[in-house]
């Protein structure tokens, strides 16, 4: 797997995503205000912030599934299909009669499309991915018979096969046990080592401090961004909470920092 990803490893350090005055929201109600900055290729970035801070909204916009209300995201020519995006609530129908092997193999869609066969080499990669996430022996099990943690592992295996230069994870450890978190975090580290850019929305700050070199703290606007230790300070977190609450009661909702600065 390492050999195949070298083609995007060489771009490490160059800007992969550029936000310019990015404002996002639904039905004209902004949820993220005037975001400015860039994310370099090969980053391992955590997005943290209080509930309603716009973290998932930002991820959705990066994935190209939400048009900005204002400003823009430059994906540097990265196609939407080259982004592996694991959403918080999988839209997946878990009662669907499909076994783990076939489900995971869907990650190969970009290579085989709707018509090509799997072939022996890709079959081997499917098995490898299943083994990597610790689901070995469950290939023939229907996805409906998996536990929450096992399903999340299967979803990670599918992401792995997507072989994407940019991986977006929205609260990937929501309802799973510590052992699963540990295994899946190892996989995320591996993706990082392979030169992929990984951006994850996370709640567990201890986990972020331990695993993520960079953090973006969001509270409907950018609070802080940079090395994790310098971002996750008590002062910054306090400020993020205040901002979120301030926005929450509606009094400050219409005024953004950029607007205030301009005034």
């Amino acid at each position: 797997m390492g050999a195949r990803v070298s083609h995007f490893a060489h771009r490490r350090g160059a800007a992969l995503l550029r936000f310019d005055n990015l404002t996002l929201g639904y039905n004209r109600h902004p949820a993220v205000h005037h975001l400015q900055g860039e994310i370099v290729s090969g980053s391992l970035l955590a997005i943290v912030g209080p509930n309603g801070a716009g973290k998932s909204t930002l991820l959705k916009a990066i994935a190209g599934e939400l048009r900005p209300l204002q400003g823009s995201i430059d994906r540097g020519g990265l196609d939407r299909r080259q982004i592996a995006y694991l959403t918080q609530q999988a839209t997946l129908d878990q009662t669907f009669p499909i076994v783990v092997h076939d489900f995971v193999a869907m990650g190969l869609w970009r290579e085989i499309g709707a018509f090509l066969g799997l072939g022996r080499e890709r079959r081997r990669r499917v098995h490898e991915a299943i083994e990597r996430v610790g689901l070995h022996g469950l290939e023939k099990r229907p996805i409906g018979a998996l536990s929450g943690g096992q399903l999340q592992r299967a979803l990670f295996a599918r992401v792995m096969l997507q072989d994407a230069p940019l991986v977006l994870l929205d609260e990937p450890y929501g309802a799973i046990d510590a052992a699963s978190v540990r295994d899946l975090a190892t996989l995320v580290r591996l993706w990082h080592d392979e030169g992929r850019t990984v951006i994850a929305v996370l709640h567990d700050l201890a986990h972020v401090r331990q695993e993520y070199p960079e953090t973006l703290l969001l509270a409907r606007e950018l609070v802080a961004r940079g090395e994790t230790a310098s971002v996750l300070t008590a002062a910054n977190l306090q400020r993020a909470r205040q901002l979120a609450e301030g926005h929450g009661d509606g009094t400050e909702a219409a005024i953004c920092r950029v607007d205030r600065d301009a005034a």
Partner: peptide
């Protein structure tokens, strides 16, 4: 037979299909 994979994925995980394919 031609569209089997497409129909399966559309039924199983439609938003994943929308993400990875124009079809």
């Amino acid at each position: 037979a031609l569209g089997l994979r497409l129909f399966v994925l559309e039924a199983c995980d439609p938003s994943f299909l929308a993400r990875i394919s124009r079809l």
